[in-house]
Amino acid sequence: MSEQLDKGQLDIDDLLARRAEVMMKPDLTERIIHAAMRTPQSTSGHGAFSAVVAELLSCFILPRPALSLAVCLLIGVTGGWLTNISPSPSYESDDVFDLVVINEEGWL
């Protein structure tokens, strides 16, 4: 099929190749250069400062946010699973009294 296509495209390619050359006016280059000379450039100090800010901000960019969050979640769940914490809270009696008895010997 591609051979057929190539034969078919021969004419259209030849025809496209006959499209006239584009000629640029010779003074356009100089006009561009002069126009640029009148235009101030926005680089130097401001550019350097914005580059530093951009660099700092780029430190906080997550390359793949969904993947990063999924990994964090997985680490969190695994860590929680492996940590040996009793499901029922256990308090030392002294701790409980510390909370309940506010001030026995104070100014009251």
Partner: peptide, 27 residues
């Protein structure tokens, strides 16, 4: 630019604007 626009004046404008922009904001 000419081949896309088919107009000499507009093609010149586009190329000039593009180069001037390049000069103004090379970063």
């Amino acid at each position: 630019s000419w081949r896309l626009l088919g107009n000499e004046a507009e093609a010149e404008d586009v190329v000039q604007d593009a180069f001037v922009k390049l000069w103004a904001q090379p970063d």
